[in-house]
């Protein structure tokens, strides 16, 4: 089985891979995992802002793929199908976290700790565009509602096309375009707020 793994090439198209996997070729599954684990992780991480939770979401995505391989139909692009699963799982994780936070806030009395940003930069680094640091953006993204958060991550961080974003989120192209724009404007506003709070 190990040898077979190497015979499979990453250059095989996704649709070929899933088809082979559906016919029982486990090596195809390995190739899919290798090909998608990091980009799905980045997606989940940007969504959740937490490595551990993001890994769990990606693990679960592959487990679902394994379990439900026959649920995939050729009508959708394989990658968007996988993203839809991961996205739904990430949203579920956020809901769970909200419930946990409700409990922990009343129990422990902390709320904003989770999102506090450590400022370790020196004065020179703290230049005009310091607001554009990765953590600031991550922080701002986690302040967006799910529907804006998901489009901004898929489009601007994962670099997917409008069409792919529409397919993943099951929304029409026109909606994708206007939502991406609104999400970017909102994100920029959030960044400004963060910058304001930093300098106050």
């Amino acid at each position: 089985m190990v040898k077979k793994e190497y015979r499979k090439k990453d250059s095989d198209s996704d649709e070929e891979l899933i088809q082979n996997f559906q016919q029982g070729d486990l090596a195809a599954f390995d190739v899919i995992v290798r090909k998608y684990k990091d980009q799905l992780l980045n997606f989940a991480f940007r969504f959740l802002g937490n490595q551990e939770e993001a890994e769990d979401v990606v693990q679960e995505t592959f487990l679902r793929l394994y379990r439900n391989k026959h649920a995939y139909r050729k009508i959708a692009k394989f990658s968007t199908w996988l993203y839809t699963i991961a996205g739904n799982l990430a949203k579920t994780e956020l809901r769970k976290r909200k419930r946990r936070r409700l409990v922990s806030i009343s129990d422990l009395g902390y709320e904003e700790k989770e999102y506090e940003i450590e400022d370790t930069s020196t004065d020179t680094e703290r230049a005009v565009d310091s607001v554009l640091k990765e953590e600031f953006i991550q922080h701002a993204i986690s302040g967006l509602s799910n529907r804006f958060r998901e489009v901004i991550i898929l489009r601007d961080i994962q670099g997917l096309s409008y069409e792919e974003v529409g397919e993943i989120l099951k929304i029409p192209l026109g909606t994708v375009k206007s939502r991406v724009n609104r999400a970017r404007l909102k994100l920029q506003d959030k960044l400004k707020d963060i910058k304001q709070n930093k300098t106050d």
Partner: peptide, 8 residues
């Protein structure tokens, strides 16, 4: 677009 990608 240039933000470093997180890895597993």
């Amino acid at each position: 677009h240039k933000m470093p990608a997180k890895k597993t």
